[in-house]
């Protein structure tokens, strides 16, 4: 959480006008994609990452929904940051997330019904997704709307990228499919790879393997970038 306090301090210093995509702003957008990834580095939003990554399609929808909610939510909170009473700021944050999530839920129900059934409980889970409250509290409350927007999009995208990577391996190795298409052949008809005795790993569709997959990604990431390893 060291970065969090730093960001708040930085925000309090009056900054000179800077271009929309200055180096610093670009960093807000790109940092969470890799070196400050919400899942692998900040360890936020793990619960939903475990739950929905058994298949690619729900992961992508979840990623898009979170980008929408976090991008807009961060802007709303940032616009209100000077008028929010600090005593009830967490409640205000919750109301903003809940309202946005209800909007997403209703829109999905109206225009993508099957998908909304598939996601059912997970849409509600966005409210409790720690990334959202985490970014509101740590960033949007102390920064302007444009910066907060970039931070929201960046963090949600970083979360989404990880979801998609994990879902890719879980769907491919667990069910032998990608987006439901049987890319490895048919396990019942024994075509493709299955003709040579390959079997799907049923473990991959269960939640623990998501955790292990995330763990492997963290391992790879930290061994490539030694600066990420904390000293103890």
């Amino acid at each position: 959480m060291a970065e969090v306090t730093e960001e708040k301090v930085v925000a309090k210093v009056k900054e000179p006008k800077e271009p929309l995509f200055s180096k610093k702003n670009k960093k807000l957008l790109t940092d969470p994609l890799a070196d400050n990834n919400p899942i692998t580095i900040q360890v936020l939003g793990i619960c939903s990452a475990l739950a929905i990554t058994a298949q690619l399609k729900p992961s992508i929808v979840m990623a898009i929904s979170v980008i929408f909610v976090l991008g807009i939510g961060n802007v709303v909170i940032s616009l209100m940051r000077n008028i929010i009473p600090s005593k009830i700021r967490i409640i205000v944050q919750l109301v903003v997330v809940a309202a946005l999530v209800i909007v997403v839920d209703q829109v999905l129900k109206a225009f993508a019904y099957t998908l909304s059934k598939e996601l059912s409980v997970f849409i509600g889970l966005i409210i409790t997704n720690c990334i959202i409250m985490g970014r509101f509290e740590a960033f949007a409350l102390g920064n302007g709307p444009w910066k907060s927007f970039l931070d929201g999009i960046g963090n949600a995208a970083g979360y989404g990228v990880l979801l998609i990577i994990v879902a890719f391996f879980r769907e491919l190795l667990g069910s032998g499919t990608l987006f439901g298409a049987k890319v490895l052949g048919d396990p019942i008809e024994k075509t493709g790879l299955y003709a040579y005795g390959y079997e799907n790993n049923g473990f991959m569709v269960l939640a623990p393997m998501a955790l292990i997959t995330v763990g492997i990604i963290i391992w790879i990431q930290r061994s490539r970038n030694k600066a990420l390893i904390e000293d103890h």
Binding site: K87, I88, V95, A99, V103, Q106, V107, Y113
Partner: peptide
């Protein structure tokens, strides 16, 4: 101020959500 803020917030959010819900209802 805190109380007024809370009341206004609930009214605004409630109205917006009710509006969206009634617009999308036929589809749902």
């Amino acid at each position: 101020y805190t109380i007024i803020f809370a009341v206004v917030m609930v009214l605004v959010v409630g109205t917006v959500l009710a509006g969206i819900s009634s617009v999308l209802k036929p589809n749902i």
